[in-house]
Deep mutational scan, measured.
Amino acid sequence: ERVRARYDYEAQNEDELSFKKGDIITVLEKDDGWWKGRNGKEGLFPSNYVEELE
């Protein structure tokens, strides 16, 4: 599954994923509120910062 970033997100910890608004992220795992994904790097990000691609 792929999602698009709705906002910029700056990683707060080294296991998190940074991205810019409009970036496409491949979702690897979904957990409550935090998803694991890849966009060149791999890490956790808040699920409310992304939207599913149509």
Results as ranks from 00 to 15, higher is better:
29 E>K: 12
29 E>Q: 13
29 E>C: 14
14 E>Q: 12
35 W>E: 02
36 K>L: 15
5 A>S: 02
50 V>I: 08
54 E>P: 13
27 V>Y: 03
13 N>A: 10
2 R>G: 06
22 G>F: 05
36 K>H: 08
50 V>F: 05
31 D>M: 15
47 S>F: 09
29 E>I: 13
7 Y>R: 14
47 S>R: 09
54 E>R: 13
42 E>D: 10
26 T>Y: 13
20 K>L: 09
9 Y>G: 01
31 D>V: 15
4 R>M: 12
54 E>N: 13
49 Y>C: 11
41 K>G: 10
26 T>Q: 11
43 G>M: 04
6 R>P: 05
8 D>M: 02
26 T>E: 13
24 I>G: 02
7 Y>G: 06
27 V>K: 03
12 Q>G: 08
45 F>G: 02
47 S>A: 14
12 Q>H: 10
7 Y>K: 14
46 P>A: 04
49 Y>T: 07
18 S>E: 04
45 F>I: 05
5 A>Y: 03
23 D>A: 07
29 E>Y: 14
48 N>M: 12
2 R>Y: 15
19 F>Y: 00
31 D>H: 15
30 K>M: 06
3 V>G: 03
33 G>M: 14
50 V>K: 05
31 D>G: 15
4 R>L: 10
23 D>K: 02
24 I>R: 06
40 G>T: 11
17 L>D: 01
12 Q>Y: 05
28 L>R: 02
35 W>K: 00
31 D>E: 14
32 D>Q: 12
25 I>C: 05
14 E>W: 11
18 S>L: 01
6 R>I: 15
14 E>C: 08
46 P>D: 07
44 L>M: 14
28 L>H: 04
7 Y>V: 08
18 S>R: 02
39 N>P: 00
4 R>C: 09
1 E>D: 10
23 D>W: 07
26 T>M: 11
18 S>H: 04
43 G>R: 00
51 E>H: 07
28 L>K: 03
34 W>M: 12
46 P>V: 01
34 W>P: 03
34 W>T: 06
9 Y>L: 01
4 R>V: 15
27 V>I: 12
42 E>R: 04
31 D>W: 15
13 N>C: 12
18 S>C: 06
29 E>M: 12
13 N>V: 05
31 D>S: 15
8 D>Y: 00
16 E>H: 09
48 N>P: 06
16 E>Q: 14
27 V>Q: 03
44 L>F: 15
40 G>W: 11
40 G>Q: 10
13 N>K: 13
1 E>P: 10
28 L>I: 13
46 P>K: 06
10 E>G: 07
18 S>A: 05
33 G>P: 10
34 W>L: 09
5 A>G: 06
12 Q>M: 11
25 I>T: 00
25 I>V: 05
12 Q>L: 09
54 E>H: 12
49 Y>A: 13
24 I>Q: 04
29 E>G: 12
49 Y>E: 01
40 G>F: 09
27 V>W: 03
22 G>N: 07
38 R>K: 13
50 V>Y: 04
1 E>I: 14
12 Q>I: 08
42 E>S: 10
45 F>D: 01
33 G>N: 13
2 R>K: 14
15 D>F: 15
15 D>L: 13
37 G>Q: 00
53 L>D: 07
2 R>I: 13
31 D>Q: 15
11 A>Y: 01
46 P>E: 02
24 I>V: 09
35 W>D: 02
32 D>F: 11
20 K>M: 08
23 D>R: 00
29 E>S: 15
30 K>Y: 08
11 A>P: 05
11 A>T: 04
22 G>D: 07
51 E>D: 08
34 W>D: 01
25 I>H: 00
6 R>Q: 07
30 K>F: 06
15 D>G: 15
44 L>S: 10
28 L>F: 08
42 E>G: 05
32 D>E: 14
41 K>Y: 09
4 R>I: 15
22 G>W: 05
20 K>W: 05
11 A>C: 04
31 D>T: 15
14 E>Y: 09
45 F>E: 04
44 L>K: 13
8 D>V: 00
23 D>G: 02
21 K>P: 01
42 E>C: 10
48 N>T: 13
25 I>F: 09
50 V>G: 03
31 D>F: 15
38 R>C: 11
48 N>Y: 13
29 E>H: 14
41 K>I: 07
17 L>Y: 02
35 W>P: 01
7 Y>Q: 11
32 D>N: 15
16 E>I: 01
33 G>Q: 12
15 D>A: 13
17 L>Q: 00
6 R>H: 05
25 I>M: 04
51 E>Q: 10
35 W>N: 03
41 K>H: 10
43 G>N: 02
33 G>V: 14
54 E>S: 14
17 L>G: 00
54 E>K: 14
29 E>A: 13
18 S>K: 00
35 W>R: 00
24 I>K: 03
34 W>N: 04
10 E>Y: 14
37 G>E: 04
14 E>D: 14
49 Y>S: 08
45 F>H: 00
38 R>D: 12
4 R>S: 07
9 Y>D: 00
52 E>N: 11
14 E>A: 14
2 R>V: 14
28 L>V: 10
25 I>G: 01
37 G>H: 01
36 K>E: 03
26 T>A: 08
23 D>H: 04
6 R>C: 13
15 D>P: 01
40 G>R: 07
54 E>M: 12
19 F>E: 03
44 L>C: 11
33 G>T: 12
15 D>N: 15
43 G>P: 01
13 N>M: 07
15 D>S: 14
23 D>P: 03
21 K>C: 09
51 E>I: 09
13 N>D: 08
14 E>P: 14
46 P>M: 08
23 D>M: 06
32 D>W: 10
11 A>L: 05
12 Q>K: 14
10 E>M: 11
26 T>L: 13
27 V>P: 01
28 L>D: 03
9 Y>F: 06
17 L>F: 03
43 G>Q: 01
28 L>G: 03
40 G>E: 11
24 I>N: 01
41 K>P: 06
4 R>P: 05
21 K>Q: 10
2 R>H: 12
4 R>N: 06
22 G>I: 03
51 E>G: 07
21 K>H: 06
21 K>Y: 05
46 P>S: 06
35 W>L: 05
44 L>D: 04
20 K>S: 10
27 V>T: 01
32 D>K: 13
37 G>D: 01
53 L>E: 08
33 G>W: 13
48 N>H: 14
8 D>H: 04
41 K>F: 09
51 E>W: 07
25 I>Y: 01
8 D>E: 06
23 D>Q: 07
17 L>A: 02
40 G>Y: 09
17 L>W: 00
1 E>Q: 12
33 G>D: 12
46 P>W: 05
23 D>N: 05
21 K>S: 08
12 Q>S: 09
26 T>I: 15
36 K>A: 04
49 Y>V: 07
3 V>T: 04
19 F>K: 02
48 N>I: 13
37 G>M: 02
35 W>Y: 08
21 K>A: 13
32 D>T: 12
38 R>A: 10
15 D>R: 14
33 G>R: 12
53 L>V: 11
26 T>G: 04
12 Q>F: 07
31 D>K: 15
44 L>V: 12
14 E>F: 09
16 E>P: 01
15 D>I: 09
16 E>Y: 07
48 N>W: 15
36 K>P: 00
44 L>R: 15
3 V>W: 15
43 G>S: 01
6 R>D: 05
37 G>T: 01
50 V>A: 07
10 E>T: 14
39 N>Q: 07
5 A>V: 07
18 S>Q: 04
47 S>C: 13
7 Y>N: 08
13 N>G: 11
4 R>A: 08
1 E>S: 10
35 W>T: 06
54 E>C: 12
21 K>I: 09
43 G>H: 00
34 W>F: 09
10 E>C: 14
2 R>F: 14
27 V>E: 00
13 N>H: 11
6 R>S: 09
